[in-house]
């Protein structure tokens, strides 16, 4: 993900995305994943890979919000910060996977050359958007009709059902729109295809509002 920095900078100019917010969440996650759960500012700079201005701003904001604390040269999570980071990490597990796969692919296949390029495109943007938005979204049944949403998570107990939903194109990071609701079903449009989802299923699909994109 070497071009991440670029992406952030591009975003400032081209899209109205709150970069600081993204960087802040990234930092929390990086600390959470670090050995002994602490990390130096220098390493953060290397890992996040955006310009220093953003990092300083993000760190000072995190400090102000009492999410991180300094201990010598290292930064650690506060109790609040830890719980925040855990939820981010959990929420991102799916997406981590998505990215991890691409790394292996580079070794595995010629076609993977373009993967990094792919990351910087829409889906990655959407996925990154998931990092920045608060909470893990609302169930589809509670989502407003005609608003654009972003699928954040699929939380269904039945594995076969989850796979079926995914194979029908209802996938985290994908845009979704509720067209209609009946007493038993929610009718959604994903990638131009419409699907009727029973309420029991719709309840397990978490959606975030797709604002400003």
């Amino acid at each position: 993900m070497s071009n991440r920095g670029e992406v952030y900078e591009n975003n400032i100019m081209s899209q109205d995305v709150d970069v600081i917010k993204i960087v802040k969440e990234d930092i929390l996650r990086i600390i959470d994943e670090a050995e002994n759960k602490k990390i130096s500012l220098k390493s953060i700079k290397v890992k996040v890979g955006v310009s220093e201005v953003f990092i300083f701003k993000a760190v000072s904001e995190l400090k102000k919000e009492n999410l991180i604390k300094f201990r010598g040269n290292f930064i650690e999570l506060t109790e609040n910060g830890q719980s925040r980071a855990s939820s981010i990490t959990k929420r991102h597990l799916i997406i981590e996977n998505y990215f991890k796969r691409t790394k292996n692919k580079i070794k595995a296949h010629k076609a993977a050359d373009a993967l990094e390029h792919y990351i910087s495109e829409e889906v990655a943007n959407n996925i990154r958007k998931l990092f920045t938005l608060k909470g893990s979204g609302v169930p589809l049944t509670k989502f407003e009709i005609d608003k654009e949403g972003l699928i954040a998570d699929i939380m269904l107990k039945d594995n076969k059902l989850s796979e079926r939903i995914i194979s029908m194109g209802i996938f985290p990071g994908e845009r979704i729109k509720v067209i209609n609701e009946t007493s038993n079903a929610v009718i959604v449009k994903v990638k131009g295809k419409k699907t009727a989802l029973g309420r029991e299923i719709a309840k397990g699909i978490m959606v975030l509002e797709y604002e400003r994109l």
């Binding site: 597990l93 799916i94 998505y98 796969r101 699929i154 594995n159 989850s162 796979e163 995914i166």
Partner: peptide, 10 residues
């Protein structure tokens, strides 16, 4: 199982 489907879909 979900991570597998997601990777495949990805």
């Amino acid at each position: 199982s979900e991570d597998i489907s997601i990777t495949r879909y990805g």
